[in-house]
């Protein structure tokens, strides 16, 4: 299939639907919600959209260095493997809830997983 994962999952509307579910899960998860306690919810949501667009392999120009920079402040305050795993968990659960087929979920998870070193600043 020549279509990108982003298109096959459903593009921007799929990203919007995923952000709604995902952000609720994250804010309710005591393990990681402190990282998302930024007072400005609209800004946070814009970042979540960037996260999903990227995980779906959609149009974005983030480099590994950008991922390092974006999360460097969080690493300083303790971001670790467990937190990363929690985010992966919510990513999978969100896509399952949206009835995304398993093989596409696996593709998205692989893209997110590939950023682990950069996100954690290793």
């Amino acid at each position: 299939m020549s279509n990108t994962l982003y298109e096959r999952i459903g593009g921007e509307p799929a990203v919007n639907a995923a952000v709604e579910l995902f952000y609720r899960k994250v804010l309710n998860d005591h393990r990681i919600n402190r990282f998302f306690e930024n007072a400005d919810m609209d800004k946070q949501i814009a970042k979540q959209k960037a996260f999903f667009t990227m995980a779906f392999g959609g149009p974005n120009s983030y480099t590994g260095q950008d991922m390092r920079n974006a999360h460097a402040g969080l690493v300083k305050v303790g971001l670790n493997e467990d937190h990363f795993n929690a985010v992966m968990e919510h990513l999978g659960a969100t896509l399952t809830e949206l009835n995304v087929p398993g093989d596409l979920i696996a593709e998205a998870a692989a893209i997110a997983e590939s950023t682990r070193k950069d996100v954690l600043g290793k």
Binding site: A50, T53, P59, N60, S61
Partner: peptide, 8 residues
């Protein structure tokens, strides 16, 4: 910022 329509 993002030039991708996400950051608004």
């Amino acid at each position: 910022a993002c030039k991708k329509g996400t950051c608004h």
